[in-house]
């Protein structure tokens, strides 16, 4: 049996699973919608992977990342639980070894990661403002009745992008409506929106950072050719969109699992595909031991045993 490694990235909007082989080649990759139910998404992903399993491989390590990394890690039995910034940097380095700048725009957050000589030296992350993230583009595409897949190619048709206020989604939307009622062409409005979002990203998330090539653009929004073009125009540089751009987090997590297992040489904690059929129950309560009133979250497995528990501040609930 050849060894392979599983990476799971549980984000707010999408849940991605990637299987890589020893050399880091992607054997399978899945991009699923989280739909507010991370546990269900992970189970669905595992089921799909099992149905379409690459013959002759067996999982030797599992890494999780994304905002749901602890949850996913507890459920599937992860060897490595890593934050998404490190995971994204690792994956970009795999695809483009000399990378110096990573622009990442996901469903609910956006980040910039600066690397020098293969080492992360700076990063910034925007989790407060939704302007410029995938969710907002999704929403605008739906409002205009354009399938999100065509959003980018439509933007590329524009000759005269209009200027849209991109500081905040609320202002951006009302400005877009204003421009549309003035009679501007839809592709010009869309291209203008892409430019506004890029401007917003560069002025907020990437403020004060030295953006040097090679620049890699990844995350779900990298599928949008209009955004890529807007970045190229704003930075006057070539932008590389890696092959596996939507699942870079999961790819990084898988690679980190591989590194970890090679260094430590233990057997994996992976619980196997039976997890997909297991029923998990989560419930929370407020601890009234003191006036901190911590919210403790419990996750129970199918056999009624506690899988994970967190949320306490004094540490007394951390003993399972």
């Amino acid at each position: 049996m050849e060894p392979c490694y599983l990476g799971i990235d549980v984000g707010s909007v999408s849940t991605n699973l990637v299987i890589i082989d020893q050399k880091g080649e992607v054997l399978r990759s899945l991009y699923l919608r989280t739909r507010g139910q991370p546990i269900e998404a992970v189970k669905e992903g595992l089921k799909k992977l099992e149905e379409d399993w690459p013959a002759g491989f067996s999982i030797q390590g599992v890494g999780t990342t994304g905002s749901g990394r602890y949850l996913a890690g507890a459920i599937v039995g992860a060897d490595v639980v890593k934050n998404e910034i490190t995971a994204h940097a690792v994956a970009a380095r795999l695809e483009v070894p000399e990378v110096q700048t990573i622009l990442e725009i996901g469903g609910q957050d956006s980040k910039i990661i600066i690397l020098r000589q293969g080492v992360v030296v700076d990063f910034a992350m925007n989790t407060v403002c939704a302007a410029g993230t995938g969710s907002f583009l999704d929403q605008q595409a739906a409002r205009l009745g354009i399938p999100i897949e065509n959003f980018g190619s439509l933007a590329l048709k524009s000759q005269q992008p209009v200027r849209i206020a991109g500081r905040c989604t609320v202002f951006a939307e009302s400005d877009m409506i204003h421009k549309q009622q003035m009679g501007h062409k839809i592709e010009d409005i869309i291209a203008g929106l892409c430019e506004a979002l890029v401007r917003n990203y560069l002025n907020n998330v990437a403020k004060g950072k030295e953006i040097l090539p090679p620049i890699v653009f990844q995350g779900g929004v990298a599928a949008n050719a209009g955004m890529k073009a807007a970045f190229e125009k704003a930075l006057n540089q070539e932008i590389i969109v890696p092959r596996h751009f939507p699942v870079m987090g999961a790819l990084g997590a898988a690679w980190l699992a591989r590194e970890y297992m090679q260094q430590n040489g233990n057997s994996t904690k992976f619980k196997g595909f039976r997890v997909a059929a297991e029923h998990f129950e989560t419930y929370s309560f407020v601890c009234e031991g003191c006036s901190n009133l911590c919210e403790i979250v419990n996750i129970k497995g199918g056999d009624g045993k506690l899988v994970a528990r967190w949320g306490g501040r004094c540490g007394k609930w951390e003993i399972l």
């Binding site: 905002s67 890593k82 934050n83 998404e84 910034i85 490190t86 080492v119 992360v120 030296v121 700076d122 990063f123 992350m125």
Partner: peptide, 10 residues
């Protein structure tokens, strides 16, 4: 939490 973890990795 994410920022701190990433910072420590860095």
């Amino acid at each position: 939490q994410t920022r701190l973890e990433a910072f420590v990795d860095l």
